[in-house]
Amino acid sequence: MTGRELARRGFALGLLTALPLAFYGASSNTGSNAVITGGIAMAFSIAGASIFVALTARPVDQRLVLAGYRPYELLLGRLLLLEVFGVAVSAVFSVVMVFGTGPPHPWLLAAGVGLVAFTSVPFGLAVGAVAPHELEGVLVLIGVVGVQLTLQSTQAIARILPFWGAQRLLQHSVDGTVSIGAAVPSGLAYATALFIAAAYIMHRRAPSLTLSRVR
């Protein structure tokens, strides 16, 4: 049902998908940087959709848990759905950038874009779990992704941001100048930690009753 709800927001999804393409197109004259900018900007699409899904579901979630769902079931369902959405968007976007830029390591570009998508979903779900409203959620998204976009992956502060691993892969795909040994583990660790954070918050917010026979 979350998929149906999301699919019916065609205009919003179109805008979300157009956003990284706009970033990529606008920076296409910067050469290899366009791939990094466009790839990281894809987090706006996937994490944006995830924040939106988490926030629109929040008023219904408590009733769904009261009805008998476990919070992690709801969260896992959304994670899987959004990851499928992320894979589809990242596949299309990878093809666009591979043909548009012609990087020496196209598979690393696809891996970098895929890692952005993979990390964006739990990032969006975690932000959606804590943000009181959509405005705050979007501001956090713009802040984190915006800062990541302005930093070089070699800067220390970039390492503590969620898309650093993907940024390394994207940079290596175009110039081969940075090591990528820690890139995938970093992205996976970040994604796992964010998902656990989202699950914990959702569990804390879930209805809690002593469901026992009254004595």
């Binding site: 008023p59 219904v60 408590q62 009733r63 009261l66 009805a67 008998g68 009753l209 002593t210 469901l211 026992s212 026979r213 009254v214 004595r215």
Partner: peptide, 15 residues
């Protein structure tokens, strides 16, 4: 709070 059985809850604002 203790309840026996499942709770059916109808909020003021339809969720």
């Amino acid at each position: 709070v203790r309840v026996s059985g499942r709770v059916g809850f109808c909020p003021q604002e339809p969720g």
